[in-house]
Design a protein around this nucleic acid. Structure first.
Lengths: 434, 434
DNA sequence: CTGTTAGCGCCTTCAA
DNA sequence: TTGAAGGCGCTAACAG
């Protein structure tokens, strides 16, 4: 059917082995032979058979990029940066005449944030013997205790996401203090509350646990695994061995400082006088959702502002989620003078809801987002938000996946999250009417 | 190293062939044997070797989706819809226990709109023996004659993109009437001006030509090729054979009615009284750019409004391009009462530029976009635009790629483009000051 | 229904 | 520097 190596070899009057060596450029070949082979390749329009070469070489040039939502620019920007890194980086000893040879095929897969689909794609990629896998965006977490943010919901209790100062293994510390009554963690310094701690171990048997297991196996079989905008993998193996995480098998991680960014954002609002601040969360069961909310709550606690559960509404990372959650907040938490959304898209929805209710931004109510997507500067009023270095994160993830950049000590890097104050936040106004 | 079929076979005490049959579910196997095999698969955590099976079966489950800009929601939405179709559709006779088996690995590749990178990815996909390739978004075109839109620039001359009523093979009809003096095409009925005609043939030897060639070869070797939001492939082979396009080798095409949508949008503005209408184009050398501009110009011509080349500024499909182009328009074309942008993101930039110049929308100047991305409804004021059925396009493209939907007669479907009138357009105001 | 037998196209020693 | 030969892991006839 298709042209094969043997055809090229015949035409160039050499053996298949020689053609292979020319094409892979990893072995000395006489210049004259080389050009003869190259010409035959051209004339025959030969294209390497990827599966065959992957089979023989036990490796492929596939690199998978898993994202939660491909339609969300947050992921698009990161994925684009990863891909750009792959394309640029592979141009070194390319054999001219065979375009794409030596290139990585960086492909993005859309998981919709579901661990099941994540698992499906990981399996598919493992089947293809992908050389690397980059997972972008928050990981799924258990959500049994997810409710309305009321006291007793340990999921969001400050203790569960402490600064580390409260001791290791805090996950069993119970529901206490979820209402923010404990100001004991007020001294959280900068950098003390990032997302670089390992994610909470998922329930055994859950899809999330399966993802973790499969990632370890991938890493163990030579596939580079990179986590980008995602917390480090939980330490597995709990009871049996207490085995220290093997650096070779521990995925390189680039975590955003979601917690710190959220904290600084809320601190900004507090500093300009707000006391009744509403919060619209992301979807339940996502690490990012939890980290951002915790940053917000920690800021409140640190400033002695009691946490009012009714000021937290559960939303999603999109416009509709923000809109609905804002409506709910207006209904049940009158007096709010500011609303923080878990990301920019949700903030857009919040703004729309407020406007539809006849409230002005920021004169009546302040609004803030998170991520600083490109459109933030263009909204009216321009949105106060937290800037995440998406491009940089993607580029570094790409380099890590290629092995062109050494992972940092401990395999975890935390990327800064900078406050961007714009026009959507101002001193408290009349607030949401009661 | 890794677990192989033979390992599973040994453990299940059957032959490798039987294991293969169980896994592929395409052949009868006794229930008892089947479950024994499945258990062995589980216990050994066996994962099929994709390359090996692709080699043996001479096909793979890889499907490539090529987009111009993965960070642009326009592409993200379509790509997401394509992927969703792949995931949902394959659930039929999945062998429980081997997640992902029988699934397609739909992957998106970011071309940046460059034919070179498009070619690179096509080569890579061809190497992997991808089962299908979906190309999303306008194709690259030659741009030698691209200038300031002045008369004489045949690239944008109405004749080059006629309704078909003016006879076949109109591409040589010269630069006449580019100033809109000919109202002869005023009677363009609905659906008469879509993008379903074949794209202009690229210059021989250009990367764009190479893309066309490679697509034909892919199609000829059994890879399904689908064009989505992209004009049909130009008819190749010009002089020699005049071979009628082989339906089996002609890619299925889903084209948006860019031309008609743009025309209707400008007609809307004309109908509410605008006469001095500015236009911000997309990047040069893209079919979409040309089609949309032509729709605009045709509407002007049809209404007897002379075309003023200085009212057309060349931009890009992003916010920055819109901003800069709008600034240029304000400088050189005073008196504009409306500005149409080639897409929504650019419209955002146009709006920002106008606002920065102290102009109100729509009281002073009306603004319109194209695509109707989700954020359009949330801008202030809400953006008048043209809605493209992105989800539907992606879903159908996915089904075509899977062979689950028959391509239409002639292999080309044109998707509607509906005018969405919102608050950013109104009766002419004071316009751009001179 | 199940086992046996050949390759699929390429890479990689091992010789020459 | 080049050729010959074996095998990567799986699938697809063909027998039984």
């Amino acid at each position: 059917m298709a042209v094969t190596l043997a055809d090229v070899a015949a035409r160039a009057r050499v053996s298949a082995a020689t053609v292979s060596r020319v094409l892979n450029g990893n072995y000395p070949v006489a210049q004259s032979t080389r050009s003869r082979v190259l010409r035959a390749v051209e004339e025959l329009e030969y294209v390497v058979n990827g599966p065959a070469s992957a089979l023989a070489a036990a490796s492929s040039d596939l690199v998978g990029i898993l994202v939660n939502d491909i339609a969300d620019p947050f992921f698009g920007i990161i994925a684009g940066a990863v891909q750009a890194e792959m394309v640029d980086g592979a141009g070194e000893d390319r054999t001219q005449g065979t375009p794409g040879h030596g290139q990585k095929l960086a492909v993005v897969c859309n998981t919709g944030g579901s661990s099941e689909r994540e698992l499906t794609y990981l399996t598919l990629l493992q089947r293809q013997r992908a050389g690397a896998v980059v997972l972008v965006g928050g990981s799924a977490e258990e959500t049994e205790t997810y409710g309305t943010g009321a006291p007793g919901s340990e999921t969001y209790g400050p203790a569960a996401v402490g600064t580390g100062a409260s001791g290791a293994g805090a996950s069993g510390s119970g529901p206490a203090a979820a209402d923010g009554s404990g100001g004991r963690r007020a001294a959280v310094g900068p950098g003390g509350g990032d997302d670089s701690r390992a994610a909470r171990p998922p329930a055994p048997g859950s899809p999330a646990a399966a993802v973790v297991a499969r990632l370890s196996r991938l890493a163990a079989t030579g596939t580079r695994v990179v986590l980008c905008g995602r917390p480090p993998l939980p330490v597995t193996g709990g009871a049996d061995g207490a085995a220290a995480p093997d650096p070779a098998t521990t995925p390189a991680t680039l975590a955003f400082d979601n917690h710190g960014g959220a904290r600084r954002l809320t601190e900004h609002l507090l500093s300009i006088g707000h006391r009744r601040i509403g919060y619209v969360t992301g979807p339940p069961g996502r690490s990012t959702t939890r980290h951002r909310l915790m940053g917000h709550l920690d800021a409140l606690a640190a400033h002695g502002v009691p946490h009012d559960p009714s000021a937290v509404a559960h939303g999603a990372y999109d416009r509709a989620g923000g809109y609905d959650a804002a409506c709910e907040l207006m209904r049940r938490a009158p007096g709010l003078t500011a609303i923080v959304a878990a990301n920019d898209a949700a903030a857009l929805g919040v703004s729309a809801a407020l406007r539809d209710a006849g409230l002005r931004i920021p004169q009546d109510v302040s609004v803030a987002g998170f991520d600083d997507l490109p459109f933030c500067a263009d909204t009216v009023p321009a949105l106060t938000t937290v800037r995440l270095p998406l491009q940089e994160a993607g580029a570094r993830a790409g380099r890590l996946a290629l092995g062109r950049e050494r992972p940092p000590h401990g395999n975890v890097t935390t990327l800064r999250a900078d406050l961007m104050v714009r026009q959507s936040t101002a001193a408290p106004g009349r607030g949401v009417p009661g």
